[in-house]
Amino acid sequence: MEKEKHHIVPYKVYIYILVALIALTFGSIGIVHLNLGGYSVLGALVFSTVKSIIVLAIFMHLKFDQPFLRIMVGFVALVFSAVIFITFLDYYFR
């Protein structure tokens, strides 16, 4: 195999990302204080999901890696969501 080219992420990108992540953290704190009732969990989890996608893409270099790694991560997320969904078929309809 030839040498895979290596992407070096500049420091300032990481700083921007950190600022964005901290902003999203406060965003999630804000949304649960909005009294959205049952939707506040959902809101907080949406913020968490966005944060985790940023961490996966930039900090964990998925954006710069080979596509099959992204496919695998997506696949694992899909399998896990399906398992939760099916488990809830029991508890939600019990």
């Binding site: 999630s28 649960v32 969990v41 907080a44 989890l45 968490s48 944060k51 985790s52 961490v55």
Partner: peptide, 9 residues
């Protein structure tokens, strides 16, 4: 990132 909202928020 997921533990934080589920327990503290």
């Amino acid at each position: 990132i997921f533990l934080f909202p589920l327990f503290y928020l």
